[in-house]
């Protein structure tokens, strides 16, 4: 049976892993390559490295960090942040990434999704959507690290991304990000049910029960975990055991 994935996310800036609360107040959490390998050994199903400062500061993804981490990983490895063109994506793939995650650049030029998918396959293209509640169970997609409203409905944008060749959607709730109060299951379910590609839920995880909820009620195919892993709040083993006990199929033992 296809299992629900737990994806360890490393938010990186200046070559270090950090984790913010609602996109601000960054705290240092370690070396990306060390943490990536440690999460893989502990049972993470995939690793995502997001260069969170790249779009804001108009600089290229830290290819050296990607290379160092990729060398030590034998599970799927996604890189996002600052990827604006096919050339940017190619460089990240060359450095050892299996998938790229694109966000602002796709909103700016949706043909980029097709462009990368045609060259590297849809399975290699994740479209990341930062969504914020606009009331009445509607959500708006934001660009530039959550700074710029786009006026686009998150569900409609996810559908367009799918039709343009995205292989997966990485959906972050801006309202929940870093709060630890749980995933936004309403947002996740509405997007997951609107598309025919896998949806990765992100933002708000504070405990194992939140993952149970987002898989069961949010219809997520995978869920992103960041701070709760870095600081040892919930060990991966414990998280997967809780999911398994709740009747959710996970890769365990790894």
């Amino acid at each position: 049976m296809l299992t629900k994935r737990i994806i360890a996310c490393l938010d990186v800036t200046g070559g270090r892993v950090v984790k913010g609360v609602q996109f601000l107040n960054l705290r240092d959490a370690g070396d990306p390559a060390d943490l990536a390998e440690a999460h893989s050994a502990a049972g993470a199903d995939e690793i995502v490295l997001l260069d969170i400062s790249a779009t804001a500061e108009q600089r290229a993804t830290l290819l050296e960090t990607v290379r160092r981490a990729a060398r030590r990983l034998f599970i799927p490895f996604t890189v996002g942040g600052g990827i604006r063109s096919l050339a940017d994506a190619s460089a990240v793939f060359d450095a050892g990434a299996d998938k790229v995650s694109i966000n602002s650049a796709a909103l700016c030029d949706p043909t980029l999704i097709t462009c990368i998918a045609e060259r590297f396959g849809s399975q290699a293209v994740i479209v990341a959507i930062d969504a914020k509640s606009a009331g009445n169970q509607h959500y708006q997609a934001f660009a530039r690290g959550g700074r710029t409203p786009t006026g686009r409905d998150a569900c409609l944008w996810a559908q367009e991304a799918e039709s343009r060749g995205a292989g997966e959607i990485l959906l972050t709730s801006m309202d929940r990000d870093g709060t630890g109060v749980g995933f936004d299951c309403v947002l996740t379910r509405s997007v997951s049910d609107a598309v025919r590609i896998p949806v990765i839920a992100s933002g708000g995880a504070g405990g194992a029960e939140h993952f149970v909820n987002v898989f069961r009620d949010g219809h997520a195919d995978a869920a992103l975990a960041a701070s709760i892993l870095h600081y040892g709040t919930t060990a991966l083993a414990e998280l997967k055991q809780t999911l398994s006990t709740a009747g959710i199929s996970v890769r365990w033992p790894c």
């Binding site: 049976m1 296809l2 299992t3 629900k4 994935r5 199903d45 599970i75 799927p76 849809s122 399975q123 292989g167 997966e168 025919r196 590609i197 896998p198 195919d221 995978a222 890769r251 790894c254």
Partner: peptide, 30 residues
């Protein structure tokens, strides 16, 4: 949903040199 993305388990139907030493229902990435 397609693509089929993620870790799924293998049901070994018959012996293969490629699968020597793997327990039944091992997880692999698709």
């Amino acid at each position: 949903k397609a693509p089929h993305v993620g870790w799924n388990d293998l049901e070994v139907i018959r012996e293969s040199g490629l699968l020597t030493g793997l327990p039944q229902r091992s997880f692999v990435y698709f």
